[in-house]
C-alpha cells in the first residue's frame, strides 16, 4: 500500500469539506480523483501533504502514520505534489527551483550534485534548454512542467498532481500524458491525480475515485465510473455526452 486514508474528515468552520473519506492507492498505480468544483479534491491533497490537519481520521504513507506530520516531513518521506495554481519560486531560476527540491526533499546532497540532478530532471520533463531562465518568465505549460520537475526532484515514491492539464492545448495535453506514463514507468513513481480534463483521465488512470460534497461517490475503472448513474447524475453526465 502506497497511500491510505481512513475516515478522513476536514471542516472549515461549519463547512464539511471532507467527510469520513477512506481511500487507498497501491504502489505503481495511476489513480484519478475527480468531482465537481468544491467537492474537496484540492482539500484532500492539501490534507494529505500536511498543509491542512484533518479533524478526524488518519493518513498513512507506505504504512507509516503521517496524520500529524508537518508538510516538510511528509515530503521527505516520499510524497511529492504540484499545485492547481502553479506556484514556482518566481524570482529564482528554473534550475534553482528544481535543485531546491533535490537539496531538501531527498535528503543530503551538495549544491553541485543537486544542480546535476536538477539538469537531469529538467531533461526528463523536456525543458533542459531553459535552466537559467527566471521562473517568472516561463509560459504556463513550462510552469506546469517546472512544478512537476520540482516535485520529482524530491525523489518521491508517490506524486500528487493537481490539474496538470488545465489550461493546456491538445498537443500539450498529449505531451503531459506521455510524461505521466514516463514518470510511472521509468521512475516507478505512483501517481494520484486530480483532473478536470476527462479524456486525459480516461487515457491515463487505471482507477478513478469520484468525490462529491467531500464524500466518495464512486470508485472503479474509468469506464465503470463513467457508466455509474450516480456519477452521471452528480457530475459526469453532460461532460461525457459531449465527448
Amino acid at each position: 500500500m502506497m497511500l491510505e486514508g481512513r475516515n478522513v474528515t476536514k471542516r472549515f468552520g461549519g463547512l464539511l469539506a471532507l467527510s469520513d473519506l477512506s481511500f487507498q492507492v497501491e504502489k505503481n498505480e495511476i489513480v484519478g480523483l475527480i468531482g465537481p468544483n468544491g467537492s474537496g479534491k484540492t482539500t484532500l491533497f492539501n490534507t494529505i501533504s500536511g498543509l491542512y490537519k484533518p479533524d478526524a481520521g488518519r493518513l498513512f504513507l507506505k504504512g507509516v502514520d503521517i496524520t500529524r506530520k508537518k508538510p516538510f516531513q511528509i515530503a521527505r518521506m516520499g510524497l511529492g505534489r504540484t499545485f492547481q495554481i502553479v506556484q514556482p519560486f518566481e524570482e529564482m531560476t528554473v534550475l534553482e527551483n528544481v535543485a531546491i527540491g533535490d537539496l531538501y526533499g531527498s535528503g543530503e546532497g551538495s549544491i553541485m550534485k543537486s544542480r546535476d540532478k536538477a539538469l537531469e530532471i529538467l531533461e526528463f520533463v523536456g525543458m533542459k534548454q531553459k535552466p537559467s531562465m527566471l521562473a517568472a518568465d516561463l509560459t504556463l505549460p513550462d510552469r506546469k512542467r517546472l512544478e512537476v520537475a520540482r516535485a520529482l526532484a524530491t525523489n518521491p515514491d508517490i506524486i500528487l498532481l493537481d490539474e496538470v492539464f488545465a489550461g493546456l492545448n491538445e498537443t500539450e495535453i498529449n505531451e503531459s500524458i506521455a510524461l505521466i506514463f514516463k514518470i510511472r514507468d521509468n521512475k516507478g513513481i505512483t501517481i494520484f491525480m486530480v483532473e478536470h480534463v476527462l479524456s486525459a483521465i480516461m487515457k491515463t488512470c487505471s482507477r478513478v475515485i469520484v468525490l462529491d460534497y467531500g464524500q466518495k461517490l464512486a470508485e472503479g475503472t474509468p469506464q465503470e465510473v463513467s457508466r455509474n448513474p450516480r456519477v452521471i447524475e452528480a457530475y459526469l453526465g453532460g461532460a461525457v455526452c459531449s465527448k
Partner: peptide, 14 residues
C-alpha cells in the same frame, strides 16, 4: 529564498 518566494510550497518540497 524558497521561503521568501512561497513558504507553504517550500514546505511541500521538504
Amino acid at each position: 529564498n524558497a521561503i521568501r518566494e512561497n513558504e507553504s510550497t517550500a514546505e511541500t518540497i521538504g
